Amino acid sequence: MTLPAEMPVEISGPQTAQSGHRITYTISVQNLGPNDAPDAVLEATIPTELTDLELTCQAENGAVCGTGSVRDGLHLPIDLPKGGKAVINLTGTIDPQYEGRLTCTSLITSPSRANTAERHSGSVTTEIDRPPVTVSPVIVGQWPQTWPEDAKGWVISYELTLAAHAQRVVWWEIGFDVAPRTRINPQQSQWYNVIKDGTDGSVVITTPDDTHTIEPGTPLTVAVQLLYPSQHEAGDGTLRNLHATEVTHP
């Protein structure tokens, strides 16, 4: 006979979001008893339009998070004693070209326990809209920089292509996160305004005036060089949390 354990699950996430942005789904599970569930398993469908996935699990009241996987959906073993609880965050970046609905569905099971909770599964749907402007990165070159002394490192040169979705965009901003000690190459001259150069972990650049507009069907390319501490720390050069936004007149 399978012992009962009441393990309700709740899932929450944004109702609306824009393509290209990062979103987080939060799943909470708990065990209300009467029996422990040492072999509980949380599973969830992950929309294929989400990439660069991050998974965190915070356990409370004696619960223990196992090693989770996000390949072919979320699979996370949890030791869930009576009174135990776990909060799981699943974060991903929405495909910049996607427009429509994303649905994330979660389910908690146990091979040795019968889940008596009414809510042993749940789902949340997010409506995805295309933003007014999107940005697409391409690496066009990389090389070691040996001078000047205070700007040594590994340079990766990017072309960031801005595209307007439906209407002309006059004022825009590009932002992304960088690794520690990474910054915009001080040896590169820029026509755009640098609001944050990366020294605080993020880069933000904006249009300098109203002449660099983006017309639908006519993209605008922005050349950006990043100076990484070393080729190893540059990795494959992926720009984390890259996004473009239309801003009001400064």
Results as ranks from 00 to 15, higher is better:
T248D: 10
P47M: 03
W154G: 13
G141Q: 08
V169S: 00
V133K: 00
S28K: 12
N185A: 14
T211F: 11
I195F: 03
Y98C: 00
H243V: 15
R183D: 07
P81N: 12
D177E: 15
V64L: 12
P229S: 14
V64R: 00
G68M: 05
P81H: 13
Y192I: 13
V194N: 03
T2W: 05
S202C: 01
V140K: 11
I27R: 08
Q15H: 15
I139S: 08
T93D: 05
G20Q: 12
V124P: 00
N35L: 05
D79F: 02
L227E: 00
G122Q: 07
D129Y: 12
L107A: 02
H21G: 14
D209E: 05
S157Y: 05
G217Q: 08
D79M: 00
G20L: 11
E49T: 06
K196D: 15
I174D: 01
G20T: 03
T48M: 14
V155S: 13
V138R: 15
C57A: 14
T116F: 07
L50D: 08
L55M: 07
V29S: 10
A44Y: 01
H21Q: 15
P132Q: 14
L102T: 06
D209C: 08
T199H: 11
L242I: 11
T182F: 00
N241T: 12
F176N: 06
D129P: 00
E173I: 07
P47A: 07
A163V: 13
M1Q: 13
L102V: 02
L55F: 01
W172D: 02
S112E: 10
T182H: 02
I128S: 00
T207A: 09
G100P: 05
P34G: 01
T2C: 04
A163Y: 04
E215T: 11
S110I: 10
S202A: 08
Q231G: 07
P208Q: 09
V9P: 02
L226I: 04
V204E: 06
T206D: 11
Q167S: 13
C104R: 14
D236K: 01
I94C: 08
L242R: 03
E49L: 02
L50E: 05
Q97M: 06
Y158C: 03
V70I: 07
G141M: 04
R101L: 13
Y25T: 08
Q142T: 07
E60K: 12
H165D: 14
M1P: 12
T24G: 03
A5Y: 13
M1E: 14
T134L: 09
D52P: 00
V133I: 15
T67V: 03
T116C: 01
A59V: 13
V204M: 09
Q190H: 15
V133D: 00
T206F: 03
E233N: 13
T221M: 13
P180L: 10
A86Q: 00
R130I: 09
H165I: 01
S136W: 11
S19F: 04
S112C: 04
R168Q: 10
L32T: 08
L50M: 04
L55T: 01
A166R: 07
V155P: 07
